[in-house]
């Protein structure tokens, strides 16, 4: 207890960082989770979409700045870049996956693995290897001084407010969209039982296409939102994808709320680890995943599938 009161301030700080990093994790993982729900394939190329979204947002931001666009424009441009990447790359990748949808799941997964390898080099050919930076949004929003324990700690307003804000909005929009709109209900129907949904006259192919495109745009948005806070280098996609996998499996497949809760656990877990036992930070997501799956083999929010005989 004495330890807790001594370290309460530090843990308060860790919570702030944890929330912001949870928001970043959620933005990447939720798209993957959505796509898994309808296509039943873990999209390895999701990591590439993240990276391309990040690079595109940075390029667009730099281009706008060079053209003399006002600084506030850099924020909406992040969303524009993500939407563009989703629309341009989403549909062709979905078509490719549909070509293999009647084959073994492992083949579909490898299609995305192959795409990942191709896109990894494509990024390098387009953006080179020199770290790319466009931090106008972070600069624009400035810092916020958080008074804590007689000290004042400056935080980036972008990371403290904007990232969690966008994540909450996305969560709310997805939950509303899935529960309350016709499209959302059709999507849930396709997710639950594709054949039955088709029999009811739902255009499953179109639902899948739209969902995949949304998922791709969300991946790109995750990258675009992360881009102002970091330097973009080759290989960022590979590192993102494993983390998203861990979130998806822990959450339960296709579960949006589960993805949110898992991201929160992982974000907080990692930032607490930095204060308490930094060496554990890297393995936190996997430990959480193993712990959750031990108790609930179908994931936190997953539903046990009935075995088809």
């Amino acid at each position: 207890m004495a330890w807790l009161s001594d370290n309460a301030f530090l843990l308060g700080l860790a919570t702030l960082d944890g929330l912001s990093s949870a928001a970043a994790i959620f933005m990447v993982a939720v798209g993957l989770n959505l796509v898994f729900g309808v296509l039943r394939v873990l999209n390895v190329a999701h990591g590439s979409l993240y990276a391309i979204g990040a690079y595109s947002a940075a390029s667009l931001g730099l281009f706008a700045a060079a053209r003399g666009l006002p600084a506030w424009a850099s924020l909406p441009l992040l969303v524009v870049a993500a939407a563009l990447v989703g629309l341009v790359l989403g549909p062709p990748i979905e078509r490719l996956l549909r070509r293999t949808q009647d084959q073994e799941p492992v083949l579909q997964l490898l299609v995305t693995f192959a795409l990942f390898m191709i896109l990894e080099d494509a990024q390098k050919l387009i953006w080179g290897v020199r770290p790319v930076v466009s931090d106008a949004p972070v600069k624009l929003m400035g810092t916020v001084d958080v008074p804590i324990g007689g000290d004042v700690i400056p935080f980036n307003a972008y990371q403290l407010f904007l990232l969690p804000g966008v994540a909450l909005l996305t969560l709310a929009a997805l939950v509303y969209g899935l529960r309350r709109t016709l499209f959302g209900r059709m999507l849930v129907a396709v997710t639950t039982d594709r054949e039955a949904a088709r029999a009811l006259g739902i255009d499953a192919a179109r639902i899948t296409l739209v969902t995949f495109t949304i998922g791709a745009a969300l991946a790109a948005l995750g990258g675009a939102l992360a881009s102002p806070t970091t330097s973009l280098v080759p290989g960022i996609g590979a590192q993102t994808i494993v983390l998203s996998f861990a979130v998806v499996a822990t959450a339960g497949l296709g579960q949006v709320e589960g993805a949110a809760l898992t991201s929160l656990l992982i974000g907080l877990g990692r930032s607490f680890a930095v204060y308490l036992e930094p060496e554990l930070e890297v393995v936190v997501p996997y430990l959480i995943m193993v712990a959750v799956l031990l108790v609930r083999p179908q994931g936190m929010f997953g539903v046990l599938e009935t075995r088809r005989i």
Partner: peptide
Amino acid sequence: VAELFPRFGASDFSTEVTRLLA
């Protein structure tokens, strides 16, 4: 006072920076 070894290729050091600030 702190030995931090963030993952190689990490893209965010916010938590580490906060800890160093504190």
